[in-house]
Design a binder for these strands. Structure first.
Lengths: 202, 202, 202, 202
DNA sequence: CATGAATGAGAGTTCATTCAT
DNA sequence: TATGAATGAACTCTCATTCAT
C-alpha cells in the first residue's frame, strides 16, 4: 500500500520541507491552475530542486492531493471548533458561516480547480465527497441534538450547506457590483432559520 | 481586435462546419476536460482536419469560448421562454427549475471546467459573469413586474439563483445516497417562496 | 491489438520516412548502445523532428524492435538464398558462412546490444529466439534432404550454428592478433564436416 | 592515473565494505542490467549509504569494472585449478567444461551485459579481451605440454573455447526445447577431440 | 478551401553525483 | 568516515500549431 520510493520524512527539517512543498505547490496550483503550474514552478517557489519533490511525492498530482487533504481537513476543523452543541444554534450557524468564509478566502480558487479535476480524477472526487459528507453529517448531528425536526434533515442540511457555500463564494469574490453583502448575509441566515423551523424543545 | 487570420465563414457549408467544430469540441471538452481534449480529438470527432480548425478559430481556447457563448446563451433562452410575466410566479419558478435541470444535464461538467478556467482566463470569466447577470436581471424584472417586494431584490435573486443551481447540480449527479430528491425540490421551492414573500398586489 | 495512435503510413513518402527512422535509429542504437542513443539523436540523424517519431512508433523501444524484425529477417533471407538443396552441402555451408559474415559486418554491435536487452525485455528475447530457431530449423531441413544422419541432428545443427557464429564474430572484429583467419575458417569447415559425418546417399 | 579522490581502504572493515559493494553491485547489475541498476539499489542492497560508494569508487561504472576484474579472475582460477598437465587431457577438458558451466551459472547475464558495454567502453572491452586471452593462452600451454600438434594451435584453442562457451550457454539457459543436453555435451567433447587430433607422444 | 504530416517547445520524471551535517 | 537529503542535467514523450501539398 505504502509507496516504496516516497519516504515519510522523519527529521524535523524534512517535515518542514515537505510541508513547504505542499503549501507552496497547492497554493500555486490553486492560484494559477493545476495544469499551468509546473513542477519546476513549485520547486522554485518552494526553494528546492525538482528532484527532491519526487522523494516526498509520487508525482505532481500527489502534491495536489496532499494539499487537498491537509487544507480540506483544516477547513473541517475550523467548522468543528464552532460546533458546540450547548450553544445557541443560530449563533453557531453565524460562527460557522464566519469560519467558512475564512476558509473560502484561503482556498476559493482551489474549489474551482478541484471541481474541474473532480471530473477526470476519481481519487480527488472521493476526497472532496468525503470532506463534504463529514461536514454535513456533523451539522446533522448538531441539529438533531439541538432538538430540530429530523424529518428530511439530510436534505435540509444539504441545502443549507449549499446556501452557505454560495454566500461564502459571493462574499469572497465580490463579483457582482451593487449587491449589499450585509443584507445578503442576513437573508441567508433568515432563510436557514426558516428551513430548520423551531427546535422541539424550545 | 478581430484576428485577421480567422475568417468568418460565408458559405453555408462552412458555417455548418464551424458549428460542428464548436458543438463537438465544446462537448468533448466538457465531457473529458479542457486539457485532456486534444485538437486532434476534436478534429476527428467533428470529421474535419486539424488544419482547418485554425481557419475558423484562433486557437483551442477560442473553440471553448465559442462553445461557451453559444450554449450559455442557449441555456438562457430556455429560461427566457419559461419566464412569462402573466403566469403564476411559483409555476414559473417550477418550470425554470425544470429548464435549468435540462441545461445542467447537458453541460454540468462544463460548469466545473469553466469554473476552473475562470480562474486564469479573464475572457471566460467575463462571459460567465455576463451570462449569470442576464439571468438574474431577467429574474429581477419578472419578480418586479409580478409585484414582489423590491427591497434587496438583487440579493434575493442571487440567493435564489444559487439555490436552484445547487439543486440542479444534486439532481443531475445524485452524488449523495440517501437523499430524497422529491423532498429536496419541495423544500427549495418553499424556501424560494419564503425568501420572496408575498407579492404586493395579491 | 493494433495501437490506435501510431499509424501505418500509406503514402510512399511516409513509408520511406518510417524506414529511414528504423534504419537510422537501429544503426545508432547498435553503434552507440540503446541507452546512449536518445530520441533526439535519432530524429536529428534521420532528419526529422522528435515528434514525428511518435506518429510512427509507440516509443523508443518500438524503433529497436522494428529494426530487429527488419534486419533479423534480412539476415535470414541472406541465409535462405544460399540454401539450395540440390547443391553440394559443403559448398552451401561455405556460402552460408559468407552470408553470415556479411550479416555480422552489418549488425555485429547489434548482437551485443540485443543480447543485453534480451535479459530485461521479453519481447526482444522472443524475437531473437524465433529468428535463431528459423535458421536452425532451415539448416536441419537442408541437411535431412541432403541425406545426413538425422540422429541428434538438432543438437548438431545448434553446435554448428554456434561454431559459425563464433567464427563470424572473430572474422568481423579481428580481436585477437596473431590468429590466421584463413586457417581458422578451414578448421571450422572441417569440424562441421566431422560433426555431420557423411551423407547416407553418397 | 589513480584517482585522487577514491582511496584504497586500509582498514579491514573498509576492505570488507568495498568488497561487499563490488559483490552486491556487480550481482545486481548482472541480474537486472547495468542501466536498470541504480546506485541507490546497490547502496541499499549492500547496506551502505549512497555517499560512501563515491569514497571507494570513481563512479557507477567503476563498480562494474571492479566486479569484472574480481569475478573474471575468479572464473579464470576455477579453470586454472582444473588444468593439471599430468592429467589426461580429455578428463581435463571435461572438468574445464564443468568449471565453466559453474561460472556461467553465476555470471551468464553478466556476459550479455558486458558484451553490450564492450561496444562503447574501451576499458571494459580490454578487460574482457585480456581475461579471454589468459584462458586461451593457458589452454595452449597445457595442450603443448601434453604433446598435441602445435600447428594452428591458437586458432584451434580459440575455436574450442567458443565451442565450450556456446555449450555452457545452452546448458545454463535451456533455451531450446527438445535438445538433448547429454548428447550435445558428448558431441562437443568428440568434436574437441577431433580438432585436437592425437597427441604426438601417445 | 482542405489536409494531415511535421514541427519543436515544454512537460513530468529519473538518477548519478555532491555536500552539509 | 559516513550519511542520505539534495541537486539539476538529461531523458522520453505530448500536443498546439504550422505549412507544403
Amino acid at each position: 500500500m505504502e509507496n516504496v520510493k516516497t519516504r515519510e520524512p522523519q527529521q524535523k527539517r524534512s517535515i518542514e520541507k515537505k510541508n513547504r512543498i505542499i503549501e507552496t505547490g497547492f497554493r500555486l496550483m490553486c492560484e494559477n491552475g493545476y495544469q499551468k503550474t509546473t513542477t519546476a514552478d513549485i520547486a522554485k517557489a518552494a526553494g528546492v530542486s525538482t528532484g527532491i519533490i519526487y522523494s516526498y511525492f509520487k508525482d505532481k498530482r500527489d502534491i495536489f492531493i496532499c494539499g487537498l487533504e491537509t487544507y480540506g481537513n483544516q477547513t473541517l476543523l475550523l467548522v468543528y471548533e464552532q460546533i458546540t452543541p450547548n450553544l445557541d444554534v443560530y449563533k453557531s450557524m453565524e460562527t460557522i458561516i464566519d469560519s467558512l468564509i475564512q476558509s473560502h478566502k484561503l482556498f476559493e480558487n482551489a474549489h474551482k480547480e478541484i471541481a474541474a479535476l473532480t471530473m477526470t480524477d476519481d481519487t480527488i472526487a472521493r476526497i472532496m465527497f468525503e470532506t463534504e459528507l463529514q461536514i454535513t453529517k456533523q451539522l446533522e448531528q448538531l441539529l438533531t441534538k439541538a432538538g430540530f425536526d429530523t424529518q428530511n434533515l439530510p436534505e435540509k442540511t444539504h441545502i443549507i450547506y449549499n446556501l452557505v457555500e454560495s454566500l461564502c463564494h459571493e462574499l469572497t469574490f465580490h463579483q457582482h457590483e451593487g449587491l449589499d453583502y450585509a443584507s445578503m448575509r442576513q437573508i441567508v441566515t433568515d432563510t436557514i432559520v426558516f428551513i430548520l423551523g423551531k427546535p422541539n424543545n424550545s
